[in-house]
Design a protein around this nucleic acid. Structure first.
Lengths: 215, 215
DNA sequence: ACTAAAAATGAACAAAGTTCATTAGAAACC
DNA sequence: GGTTTCTAATGAACTTTGTTCATTTTTAGT
């Protein structure tokens, strides 16, 4: 029927042995991320992903367990992207004083949220059913962001516990400002207003830090 | 057959003419609020409410349009409750300086969120489907909270626009701190930590205000 | 080529929101 | 009082969507 060479020609196009599965896994993830970015995490449906990925719904469940698993994987991707952005700003501002540095980090966070609105919202909108909890590594990459911030704050002058507190509080504050701004469909979302709010709270936070270390 | 008095005796037990519907409306709302507080807004199901209210699912839809309508009504109730709490603190701190006053308001907000966790979360977790938007009066009562805060900030010394900015930023900041704290199931939610974070950010915000008005 | 393990499949099931033809009841009119 | 008319309640049926699992297909080893 066919020589070894022909067989190879027919089989090889599907690339490596294990990589077919890996490619499908990546495809599904990419599709999920696209759907989330375009229409929000609520629009992510198993059948729809299956059609776009040209596989059956069952396969999605084989690979990701359930939709929550797929969403968590997508969110992990988004979290990693955000982490990279912040890390880059962190590295680029090593020489600067705490205040401007925190502002740069906060604005980078805002930038990311605005450029990836629905992906960013998916991280906080998604809730898994009672009983289940987030995988360890996912939680870990969340806290890494906080550690990054606290490292930006901790200096010779600022004690570690206070730096942690300030990092947590300011991260949450910036997060809250963006989250509420994106919710209010009243004002058509003026980015410059959000930026000014963030500058206010981060500037104030830096002042507060300066005040605390003298006290 | 019967005198006017007898007729009255037979009809009155069912109370007023229109009030049967009103009572059912209130019952359904109370049930919804109970379910939300005990199990979260995701646990609110039409069939379940119907069973508890001893009516059919159709009736719920006749009264509230759909589940979103019921949830919005429940959230409006929660929002009103929160508004009352904040208004009380506002009135009780008329004589105090801006800093302690804002702290008192922020802590009252925290207190409310902790005492009504799932009702509070329902306000921010609930998203209505694309296309629909929140009723006017609901949005109005949301912004009333902001106005309250900005009034607490606006003084002779602080210009109105800055007061609005500070109110918005600090409200969002406090909100973010509480929201993220309630999400992290890692740490078993230490209220004293949250309180300290809030004191930090509000204190810093007050400092920032003082700084800005001199600049 | 045969076989056993692994993976893919998609029909079927389950859970939940929503609709609407039908029924019951109240009000108005004669 | 009886008849009619309008309003509201009902719940079975429909729709959507997550999930399962018996079956089929593919892969890998001998």
């Amino acid at each position: 029927m066919s020589s070894k060479a022909d067989d190879a020609a027919l089989e090889k196009p599907t690339t490596d042995p294990a990589s077919f599965r890996e490619r499908l896994r990546a495809d599904i993830l990419a599709i999920a991320l696209r759907v989330i970015e375009l229409e929000g995490v609520a629009a992510l449906q198993a059948r729809r992903v299956a059609v776009e990925a040209e596989c059956s719904v069952g396969t999605i469940y084989n690979i990701y367990g359930d939709l929550d698993g797929l969403i968590i994987s997508a969110n992990a991707e988004t979290l990693a992207l955000l982490g990279n952005e912040l890390k880059a700003v962190y590295d680029a501002t090593l020489a600067e004083p705490v205040g401007p540095r925190l502002t740069a980090l906060a604005l980078a966070y805002m930038e990311f949220a605005l450029n990836n609105r629905l992906r960013w919202r998916a991280i906080f909108d998604h809730r898994l059913p009672a009983g289940k909890s987030l995988p360890e590594d996912y939680q870990a990459s969340r806290s890494e962001l906080l550690v990054l911030l606290s490292q930006a704050i901790a200096t010779n002058d600022v004690q570690r516990p206070l730096a942690m507190r300030a990092a947590r509080a300011m991260f949450a504050a910036v997060h809250g400002i963006i989250a509420l701004a994106l919710d209010n469909k009243l004002s058509p979302f003026d980015a410059s207003v959000v930026e000014a709010d963030i500058r206010f709270i981060v500037g104030a936070g830096a002042l507060g830090l300066a005040g605390s270390q003298n006290a």
